[in-house]
């Protein structure tokens, strides 16, 4: 899976970090999402999909290989 984030849409809620802290973080200065790993392994899949699903700004997109 490959993840992209839209920094302009991100509202800094940090829900993604609460759900998948191995994959997402926030910038110290403004809370905008930081992608720690853009192609995480299978063990992170469920958490990443949930993080994308609950993001209140719809700022996380997950692209899964067909």
């Amino acid at each position: 899976m490959k993840i992209t984030v839209d920094e302009d849409k991100c509202c800094g809620a940090g829900n993604c970090v609460l759900i998948a802290p191995e994959v997402f973080d926030q910038r110290d200065e403004d809370g905008i999402v930081v992608l720690l790993r853009s192609e995480p392994g299978a063990e992170e899949r469920a958490a990443v999909l949930e993080a994308a699903a609950v993001c209140p700004a719809a700022a996380i997109e997950v692209h899964e290989e067909a």
């Binding site: 809620a13 940090g14 609460l18 910038r27 110290d28 403004d30």
Partner: peptide
Amino acid sequence: LGWNMPKQARLLRQ
């Protein structure tokens, strides 16, 4: 509450 401190507010929440 965070006032221009989103990350710190989230950490405090945790």
